[in-house]
Design a protein around this nucleic acid. Structure first.
Lengths: 231, 231
DNA sequence: GCGGTGACTGAACGCATGTTCAATATCCTA
DNA sequence: TAGGATATTGAACATGCGTTCAGTCACCGC
């Protein structure tokens, strides 16, 4: 199944890397073998190793490339104003492989993925802060935690996109989703819950009081295992 | 690394099944091989196949067993009143393997997992309906979707528990979490967002109006690919 | 005690994997 | 144009995989 045209001006190395990303996106990490990648890229298995040293090397190169593409998209997106939808950054990428690639690597804990996610949380926190200033978002007692939770929810939904598709009827990895009416099936309950609230005022007060009491019962508990200090 | 004591009164078949669940929970699906499971259970690789037919058969048996344990827990939990925390049902299970097992299988789309998740959404929907009746939860225009989204968020966070641990400082697979002060680091921003709301009233109205307009631009779009009809 | 049935094992099979290596083709530089 | 580096290949390697199979062991009804 060679999927390269005769006039492909990418270098073989780039073709191999892209083939690997596509393969992971379509079949997952475990099913991405040297021979499948080589076949998709239209080269021999030996060349894959020649260019990337090992299968691990290829994996790292893919992660690096994806992180770079996302970084590019983010700086571009920054110009068009803040956006709460952390997923939008890579949904509309060529071929749509990026979202599905991420969905697959999100669940294994490589340092590269951790760095990628931490960066997304940083962005979310900054966007939220802007939203608070401009009166769109309510201020919070838990700035960093709120951004983290929001990012985890969004990325978690991406990781479970197969189930989201079955339950809500929309494909979170679809590059055209941003402009699709199907997006409403996700965002309308999203806005309802995060706008008007899920719990009633009285219940919220009770829940927070109960939780605060539990939290106060042990203040020496360790916080997030983050490099930076917490504000 | 045989991890069975001399006086283990479980049948060999049960020991193999439990060993497989532990192995998946600790090392993931791809790294769970016949030989590793056999070694953990203290039997020969051939016996694993003898009892379960194949590796796929073992996998199905594990899924079935996990589903059964969760069902048991749910019926017991039902007696002590409704609980919004869908994760609590299996967090406090022997050894804590269940949560980590689920975290690993959540992302591959077997029918068994889909059924499990659909069942959780059903429960969440029922619990939420009870909450609405008793005045704890606000009524919604999107009953089923709201329950689905809530379940996806919770389960997505479980799937990304490694990142949740790094970002929020709590282990969602920890069996003792329900009684731990660390839980507050997840639930306090949770209650804040889902209680008071994330967006301001004005912003919410704008967001929903914009999204509704987009949704109305194509009403023939397919809904969730669900068996049951939608209400 | 005997025969049969199921639990259990060790050794082997065929296959797919990641990787190595010598050999060839292609390109760039001098 | 000669020559050295780089790109690329096919064939082979060792390893680990799931699975098979003949054979041993223990139990249980007759």
């Amino acid at each position: 199944m060679r999927s390269v045209t005769a006039s492909d001006d990418r270098t073989a190395k780039a073709r191999i890397r892209d083939a690997a990303i596509t393969c992971v996106a379509e079949h997952g990490l475990a099913a991405t073998t040297v021979r499948k990648v080589a076949d998709t890229a239209g080269v021999s298995p030996a060349l894959v190793i020649h260019h990337f040293g090992s299968m691990d090397g290829l994996r790292e190169a893919c992660d690096r490339h994806v992180a770079e593409v996302i970084r590019d998209h983010k700086t571009k997106a920054l110009a068009s104003g803040p956006n709460l939808d952390v997923l939008a950054a890579f949904r509309d990428y060529e071929g749509g492989d990026l979202g599905r690639y991420l969905a697959h690597i999100l669940t294994d804990d490589s340092p590269a993925v951790a760095r990628l996610i931490d960066g997304m949380v940083d962005d979310a926190e900054a966007y939220i802060a802007q939203g608070v200033e401009s009166g769109i978002i309510r201020p919070s007692e838990y700035g960093r935690e709120r951004a983290s939770l929001l990012a985890i929810w969004q990325l978690g939904a991406l990781a479970l996109h197969r189930h989201a598709e079955r339950l809500l009827g929309l494909d979170l990895t679809d590059p055209g989703l941003t402009a699709s009416p199907a997006l409403a099936r996700y965002t309308l309950p999203f806005y309802e819950m995060l706008g008007g609230g899920l719990f009633t005022e009285e219940a919220t007060a009770n829940l927070i009081a109960a939780m605060s009491a539990l939290a106060a019962s042990d203040d020496g508990a360790p916080g997030p295992t983050d490099d930076e200090g917490r504000t």
